[in-house]
Design a binder for these strands. Structure first.
Lengths: 190, 190
DNA sequence: CAGATGACTTAGGGCAACACAAGTCAGATA
DNA sequence: TATCTGACTTGTGTTGCCCTAAGTCATCTG
């Protein structure tokens, strides 16, 4: 908090008691520096959680990735009741992660199916990252299921990577204001 | 559902109405093939969500990555009440994602700080993946904040990658049973 | 035409997450 | 000794997620 913190007010000093675990922390750059100087009220993590911040939404999406398309299958495979499945699927459709469309099989009447939109399938890396963490820390005997790249056969995982191709650990990351930050006012965002 | 589905029972046919959107779906391999033949009751995503499946848990972890260590700061920066912060922090400590330890600043009395454990910081890729999705789909003006690799300066993102270095789209992925799957019985897991 | 689906909805209730307001308690500072 | 601060806890009420049980309604099949 030396280079440009003078322009800001209040802010008591951060503890910064060096116990060597600083490496698990991102470095805050520029206007974000003393964490006390801004609030994360437009945080994209927060917004994402407003949409998929509950258990059943993510589990329904998991099922969609596994190819499930029908209402009853969603409910039984996720293990939730029909009323919850209905509510949650409706919400996911309203938010544009799934689309509900009628389809017809030969000699069958018209039914409904739920399909991932681009917005929905773009969440896949997050789901994989979560699965990977669960595999590592919560699955005693190892991963129940694994993902691989079909054709090349290699296992697939979620990772952090920079534009230069490095895989930086948390301690080498820097957080700075992005293009969507609101200007000035002590209130940036995350 | 041709090669090895004969050994399984019940299971009505999947819709498989070809509308060309199959590419947003993972291919289920081997024992997992007809999705109706197994239940995902040991799913690592589900287990992960039992631990961090609520809004405040993930937001508290976000703060921990931003360097927050003190109780009051967690509460105000995440924007939750003290009772929730206390409950959620306690749970995260109990589950081993954070550790609570006393610390002392010169001439100050002993206080408590919360720090990420390895288990906790291993969740960072999932958080970044979620943030990235929120940035893309829910942030009108672009990302409020961005991550970069300090030193090399390049932007950092979460991605899926296979052992051969490819970045496979969802349609090229295959899901198969992993080492932690329970044997036989029509009930595998995810 | 009598079921059987598939895709829901309605009713009623439990529990967990959250909020606000207020209180506690230990140690530092004035 | 009186007050302040940090880190909580207690009390109380609301909202939301989820459940079970029981309809509904439009086809399709026997």
């Amino acid at each position: 908090m030396e280079t440009e913190a003078e322009t800001r007010r209040d802010i008591r000093p951060e503890p910064r008691v060096d116990t060597g675990a600083e490496s698990q922390t991102v470095r805050l750059a520029g206007r974000l520096d003393p964490r006390g100087s801004w609030t994360a009220d437009a945080c994209s993590i927060g917004r994402a959680l407003d949409v998929v911040g509950n258990r059943s939404a993510l589990l329904l999406l998991r099922e969609a990735f596994y190819g499930t398309t029908r209402f009853d299958d969603f409910a039984t495979r996720v293990g939730i009741s029909e009323p919850s499945a209905a509510a949650r699927l409706r919400q996911l459709v309203a938010e544009g992660l799934l689309e509900r469309e009628p389809y017809q099989e030969a000699g069958q009447r018209t039914r409904m199916q739920y399909r991932l939109t681009e917005k929905g399938s773009d969440l896949f890396p997050a789901l994989v990252a979560l699965m990977q963490w669960g595999d590592r820390w919560l699955a005693p005997g190892g991963s129940p299921v694994t993902l691989s790249h079909q054709g090349c056969g290699q296992p697939v995982h979620a990772e952090l990577r920079c534009g230069a191709g490095h895989q930086p650990p948390v301690g080498e990351l820097e957080l700075s204001v992005g293009p969507g930050a609101r200007r000035k006012g002590g209130s940036a965002t995350s």
